[in-house]
């Protein structure tokens, strides 16, 4: 608030003081929220890190199993087995609120993992290597869903933290200093005006005394 716009009045000063008190309270609250979010973030982060590590690991394993299956049984047979997978696992996502941040959460979890007799192909005569590759990929899908959930949460949290941090910063470094400056300006201005008044009164007083001492000619 540019200080020239401020009307140095007493009411304004009172208003300023109120504003300062308000932003100080908001500032504290936001700071707390920020810290909370950060804590939540780190909590989710470590979880996500684990999940991601597991996912990477499972991915390597799945790739390896698939390569093995393709090597041993041939690409054609693996393709043929892949045709047998009839249905795709579906996931329904819901939301939950973490300190005012809306994050996704899995509500209906139909597991991607299937037992060998539920995979769609016949068990008799099926290659164990293809089955193992399928198992590994199903595990990978599970991991990916979980990782997606966690990582989206992380992203939302980061956004929110960023936003909160910006607000805190704005309050701390912009709004509050400006308010304080205006307040002090008003205060100083008012003090100045007071001093001026006193001076003026004193001046008037000495003028009246002089006039009384010298008679009118």
């Amino acid at each position: 608030m540019p200080k020239q716009d401020v009307k140095p009045t007493r009411t304004e000063l009172i208003e300023m003081k109120r504003k300062i008190a308000l932003s100080q309270r908001g500032y504290k609250l936001l700071k707390m929220k920020r810290d909370g979010l950060i804590m939540e973030f780190f909590k989710t982060l470590s979880k996500a890190k684990d999940v991601r590590a597991k996912m990477t690991q499972d991915y390597v394993l799945a790739e390896d199993r698939l390569v093995v299956a393709k090597c041993v049984e041939g690409e054609a047979v693996v393709n043929s087995a892949a045709f047998a997978i009839g249905h795709n696992p579906s996931v329904t996502m819901g939301t939950k609120n973490v300190m005012g941040v809306v994050v996704p959460t899995k509500i209906e979890s139909e597991t991607a993992k299937r037992r060998v007799d539920q995979k769609g192909y016949g068990v008799v005569g099926m290659s164990a290597r293809i089955n193992e590759a399928a198992n590994a990929y199903e595990q990978l899908v599970e991991d990916i869903i979980l990782a997606a959930e966690l990582e989206t949460t992380l992203k939302r949290l980061v956004d929110e933290i960023e936003k909160t941090k910006r607000r805190v910063n704005a309050l701390e470094f912009k709004v509050m200093p400006e308010l304080q400056e205006s307040e002090s300006f008003i205060r100083l201005r008012l003090e100045e005006m007071e001093r001026e008044n006193v001076f003026r009164l004193k001046k008037i007083k000495t003028k009246g005394q002089k006039a009384r001492k010298r008679p009118v000619t």
Binding site: A76, V77, N79, S80, A81, A82, F83, A84, I85, G86, G120, Y121, G122, G125
Partner: peptide
């Protein structure tokens, strides 16, 4: 032949295009 019948059945179930199914036939 059994293997190939299986491949065809799977392919049809998946709605794969005929060329892809034929590639998997031995």
């Amino acid at each position: 032949d059994v293997r190939n019948i299986k491949t065809v059945l799977r392919g049809k179930r998946y709605n794969a295009i005929p060329e892809d199914i034929l590639k998997a036939i031995v």
